[in-house]
Design a protein around this nucleic acid. Structure first.
Length: 491
RNA sequence: GCCCUCAUCGUCUAGGGGUCUAGGAUACCAGGUUUUCAUCCUGGCGGCAGGGGUUCGAAUCCCCUUGAGGGUGCCA
């Protein structure tokens, strides 16, 4: 059995989004599972929209998610070049072969003429197919067009009018297309570049790709590609067409407004962990044999099977992603989460490098108690702000009123005393102080907890009291309680 | 229009003729963890698109309808 070779061929016409990344992920998984190789090929035949910046972004994001490339534009290899714009001579060589065999021909019809044909066909209720105008041009006719300055395209010549082409899909089984729905499609554009359907075949064949795993949106184009494989006597690889990822409106996922996040970078910037996104993405269309929802990369590789992939499209559900990500944030090693949270805290202006060095352990405590309340790391500053900002009351009048309530003074003074008397200033010990308070004083739990929270944080809700006090420290806690006590005299 | 694909709780899914009064997760609701938000635990709500077959028996197989998505580009 020869080596399994898979490829991920993004087009650098935009940032990499959820759908592309999921495709890359499945290719990577299947390669890892089978000790195969994953090739990164840049499909930049669209000269108008392709840029090097986008190529760099794609490579960066793949790396971020942990998808390592064995061969390709970013790392080199023996089947290069891996950028289609650098493979022109190859495409020319093979299109020349087709031309010679009579399996392709030059077409001089202009885009306007083609557009008109399409409109006419549609108006008649016919299928919008190329009408074969240039199929059998005489030498004179061709010369005439050339003199007019027309730049030709090259079309594949469809010879069999009623033949079934079967795509053996690993996920869907046999899918049959009849050549009657096809036409003489363009394989070389007038700008001298190959079209997708042509270049992809040449590249996959020359790069010895054994399995093509891609989105279902490519299924309908596969018969055209098979025609090219056969015309050039290339072996046809295996195909597996993945179900599409839909947005909440059940349409193919794409950027529609500033509000919806579809690019991987947007998730990275918001503070989603690569492990979590990886885990979540795989579950869009695949699930393990057991009921587990959180799996490590190795577990996923171990369990992954092409056969287990779903046929139906999946809706991208941000709520579920948030849950998965929150789960990872809470369960990951705290130092790792601290490291990833620092940039957000810096951006909020709460800390700088010097502060981190001096107060790392304290910072770790803060993030440790804040992490339970967030879905993604960019929410950390908001969650932890009470530890960085000076005490500020959301509603001062209300606070004063609450401090004036019966029993509050008693609670505060006793709390202070008990905290000072503590032999160990630890969350668990602080917690027992509260139970004692409730037991010993003639007040309910609410009179103990709520005013205290208000006095210490200025807010109605937040992390657990024992943690707040622990992190604030004995001194600051006493100060704030005293301040609240003084506020009782106001008004 | 034509071609292709798909169809289980709102969402992600398990299920591949009987063990399904359909399981898990999320979301939502309620209760608990003797304050709140969150975490965590417990419980609840909620689904086989519709119609025909095949079969002793169908979520599971077949057909039709409907719905959804994709393709039909000198985009990939």
């Amino acid at each position: 059995m020869s080596e399994m070779r898979l490829r991920f061929p993004p087009s650098p016409t935009g940032k990499i989004h959820i759908g592309n990344m999921r495709t890359a992920l499945f290719n990577w998984l299947w390669a890892k599972k089978n000790n195969g190789k994953l090739i990164l090929r840049i499909e930049d035949t669209d000269q108008k929209r392709s840029t090097k910046e986008f190529e760099d972004i794609i490579i960066k994001e793949l790396d971020w998610l942990g998808i390592d490339i064995d061969e390709g534009a970013s790392v080199g290899g023996e089947y290069g070049p891996y950028r289609q714009s650098e493979r022109l001579v190859l495409y020319q060589k093979y299109v020349e072969k087709l031309l010679k065999k009579g399996k392709a021909y030059r077409c001089y019809c202009s885009e306007e003429e083609l557009e008109q044909m399409r409109k006419d066909a549609l108006a008649r209720g016919d299928m919008p197919k190329y009408n074969g105008h240039c199929r059998n041009l005489s030498r004179e006719e061709e010369l005439k067009y050339i003199e007019e300055g027309r730049e030709p395209v090259i079309r594949y010549r469809l010879t069999e009018e009623d033949k079934d082409i079967v795509v053996n899909d690993e996920i869907r089984g046999d899918v049959t297309f009849n050549t009657s729905v096809l036409d003489d499609f363009i394989i070389f554009k007038s700008d001298g570049m190959p079209t997708y359907n042509f270049a992809v075949v040449i590249d996959d064949a020359l790069m010895k790709i054994t399995e093509v795993i891609r989105g279902e949106d490519h299924l309908s184009n596969t018969p055209k590609q098979i025609l090219i494989y056969e015309a050039l006597d290339f072996p046809v690889p295996k195909f597996a067409h993945l179900p599409l990822i839909l947005d909440s409106d059940r349409a193919k996922l794409k950027k529609r407004s500033e509000d919806d996040d579809v690019y991987i970078g947007e998730y990275r910037e918001k503070g989603y962990l690569p492990e979590a996104l990886f885990n979540f993405l795989v579950f869009l269309g695949w699930s393990p044999p057991d009921d587990k929802e959180i799996l490590t990369r190795d577990e996923i590789i171990k369990n992954f099977e092409l056969n287990d992939i779903n046929k139906s499209a999946a809706v991208f559900d941000i709520d579920k992603l948030n849950w998965v990500n929150g789960k990872y944030i809470r369960e990951a090693d705290l130092d790792y989460i601290v490291e990833l949270s620092i940039p957000y805290l810096k951006e909020a202006g709460y800390i700088d490098e010097v502060f981190v060095e001096k107060n790392y352990e304290w910072l770790k405590k803060v993030i440790g108690v804040s992490r339970t309340g967030v879905d993604y790391l960019s929410q950390i500053p908001k969650e932890a702000e009470l530890f960085f900002k000076k005490l500020e009351f959301e509603d001062k009048k209300k606070a004063v009123k609450e401090f004036q309530e019966e029993g509050v003074e008693l609670v505060f003074t006793n709390l202070k005393k008990k905290l000072i008397d503590l032999d160990e200033f630890k969350p668990e010990k602080i917690s027992t102080v509260f139970s004692e308070l409730i037991k010993e004083l003639p007040v309910g739990g609410r009179t103990v907890y709520h005013p205290t929270r208000l006095a210490l944080t200025g807010m109605d809700s937040g992390p657990e009291m024992k943690n707040v006090i622990y992190i604030l420290g004995i001194e600051e806690t006493i100060n704030r309680l005293d301040k609240a006590l003084m506020m009782r005299d106001q008004k």
